[in-house]
Simulated assay, not measured.
Amino acid sequence: MPRLSVVVPIYNVERYLEECLDSIAAQTFGDFECVLVDDGSTDSSAAIAEAFVAKDPRFRLVQQENKGLGAARNTGWRHIGADTEYLTFVDSDDTLPPNAYQLMVGTLDETGSDFVTGNALRFNSEGYSPSGVHIKPFKETRLKTHITATPALVTDRTAWNKVYRRSFFDAAGVLYPEGILYEDAPVSVPLHFLAASVDVLSEPIYHWRVRETGEVSITQMTDPRSLVDRVRSIELVREWLLAHPEPEYRDYLRSYDANTLVEEIPKFFWLVADGDAAYRVAYQQHVTRLLQAIGTEHLTGLKGPLRIKYRLTLANRMRAFIAVHRLHRFYVAARRRLRGGGR
């Protein structure tokens, strides 16, 4: 039985799929099986997958009606070998450097941690660059650490830069939510808290594509549904934390809420200012619900501009919110120019 199971959900990625599968097949760690889950593709993705399965016995294909990325990952997990030691996920438009799994599995063999998580690069036709969301938690390699010892790991929410010890993943009982976008965090964050120890690698072990043509990826979406589902993803993590009565989980919740206020919700601000009316309505409704759940008393310690934006959100004063945000954005840009020697 292969030591590592790789799950690859597939949906309408004919433009990128072969490159993704080639990068998996080329891994210097070859003791793996790869379960491809065609989630009801309407393009030639299934045919590309079938051709790959025919030439490499380590790959096999499972097909289902379209149910979304979370459901496809769960289906793949249900179809992996019963005795595989490790589990990982790959998105079908991305790629991996050749030594990714050799490094990650080797690290787990050495440390005995519950999972290993690694840095990522973004890439397009022009080349590779650091992934902004991964810079802080992966600044340095830390073996046998934990989210409580390395708080920046609260932002390590992507599904695909990790190799899990299979026994740990199965025992946790935390599967991907189905029917929403941004399904990574409701699994990645709880597993960080449940782990006895985690290995963090500063070396990039994943290449995360920026789509330049065709349908954009989930993280590139700018419509109201993207906002609604992202807020719901945050709420699912909060619900999981609240469901645990142990005192330490109250501390975990406070840490998670603080990160949500400072880093997660502000990602919506630029589209509130520059987007359409439907996006603004969705923002005010769903972010207000989230802020009320977190507790408005937690806004007091935030920096002035951020605190003002949240107060205006709660008061449904979106015109004032947009004016404040644009002024703040201008001020930040001006300060950057001054630091760079501009006028």
Rank of each mutant, 00 (worst) to 15 (best):
M1H: 12
P98Q: 09
P247Q: 05
K267L: 15
Y279C: 11
E18P: 07
S113F: 02
L312P: 06
N66H: 15
A185E: 10
Y16G: 00
A243L: 05
D43R: 00
V272M: 11
K267E: 14
Q102D: 11
D274F: 03
H286T: 12
I24R: 04
P2Q: 11
D184R: 06
N12T: 04
V272D: 04
E235N: 12
A82I: 04
P190S: 09
Y206K: 03
P97F: 03
A273R: 10
H325G: 00
E248Q: 14
S92H: 05
V332Q: 08
P137V: 15
D229K: 07
K144C: 13
S233L: 13
Y164G: 05
A277R: 12
T88C: 15
E178F: 10
R250M: 05
A315P: 00
G295L: 03
E239L: 09
G106Q: 13
S188P: 03
T288N: 01
A46S: 14
F52Q: 05
V154Y: 03
S5A: 15
R78C: 02
S5C: 08
D109A: 09
L4A: 04
E50L: 12
A323W: 02
N119Y: 08
F321H: 10
L175S: 14
L153D: 02
K139I: 00
G132D: 09
E239T: 15
R317K: 10
A333V: 04
D91K: 02
E50F: 02
L242Y: 08
L175D: 14
V231D: 06
T300Q: 11
T260A: 00
D83H: 12
I234M: 06
P57Q: 00
R122K: 13
G132L: 07
D56H: 06
P97V: 08
K136E: 15
A243E: 05
A159Q: 10
Y86N: 07
E246K: 10
I205T: 14
N99W: 08
F168M: 07
R73S: 05
F123R: 09
N74M: 02
R254L: 14
S233N: 10
V35L: 10
A185I: 06
W208L: 12
Y310M: 04
F59E: 01
F52A: 11
L181E: 13
A54D: 11
P151L: 11
E65R: 09
R230P: 01
G341R: 12
H298Q: 15
Y16A: 08
H207C: 15
L236F: 07
L181F: 12
E85Y: 03
S197C: 01
L241D: 04
G40K: 04
T141E: 07
A323T: 08
L338K: 14
E183M: 09
V324P: 00
R289Q: 14
